[in-house]
Design a protein around this nucleic acid. Structure first.
Lengths: 108, 108
DNA sequence: GCTATTTATCCTACTCTGTAGATCTAAATT
DNA sequence: AATTTAGATCTACAGAGTAGGATAAATAGC
């Protein structure tokens, strides 16, 4: 691992979507939440590989639900942010905050 | 190029350092500004390769100064953010803003 | 029961970004 | 001319971002 240990931008976005969704955080709604809020489409692959990496780093955990009674059967893989993920999110926000502090782009 | 066209986190940080420094934005002070504000060390190589990439994408421009009268001779390569860089910075900020909006990590 | 439909995740492959630090350049000082 | 100082370049690799086709599993309808 690098010495850096802060998050990439997309990792932040995915973690935040997870936080926003709470108990309903699995692949499909996570993707939907990001697309809805950021107005940009994200591919399925982009999402799942990021989720896998977040889990591998201990920033999130996942487990499978029993299938529901709705049509369409594959089990959902639910995600939850873990304490190191929370810390990393905070650090990332702080770093950008100190760099932005006082900057007004309009005046350049 | 990807379809994404927003900035990586470190790219944002470097562009913001450039903005903060105004007329004094060349390698050494850029690095110093980032280390001072974020409290993390960054390697010389990390900085220059990012600067090169930002320039290649048209987000920044650079030019060489005539050497000054100080000891230590190599010309400074000054950097300036360009309009597409400003736009990209704004977009990146907006994306993170909508994802953060209303999130309170303390309550998780 | 078999097939179509629906929901959802997995897999593979590739490009771009992040990171490191040794090396190279060139002027001013001694 | 040797040393010191400021500064940029180079090479190489690890990690994050991106894309979409393939796969899986359940229900609905016949």
């Amino acid at each position: 691992m690098s010495t850096r240990d802060s998050l990439g931008e997309f990792e932040q976005i995915v973690l935040l979507a997870m936080v926003r969704l709470g108990d309903n955080a699995y692949g499909v709604p996570i993707r939907h939440e990001i697309e809805k809020r950021t107005k940009r489409t994200i591919s399925i692959g982009a999402l799942y590989s990021t989720l896998d990496r977040l889990e591998a780093k201990g920033y999130a955990s996942s487990w499978f639900s029993n299938p529901t009674a709705e049509r369409g059967g594959r089990s959902r893989r639910y995600f939850k942010i873990e304490p190191p993920g929370l810390k990393a999110l905070e650090r990332s926000r702080e770093v950008l905050e100190v760099m932005w502090k006082g900057v007004k782009l309009g005046r350049i």
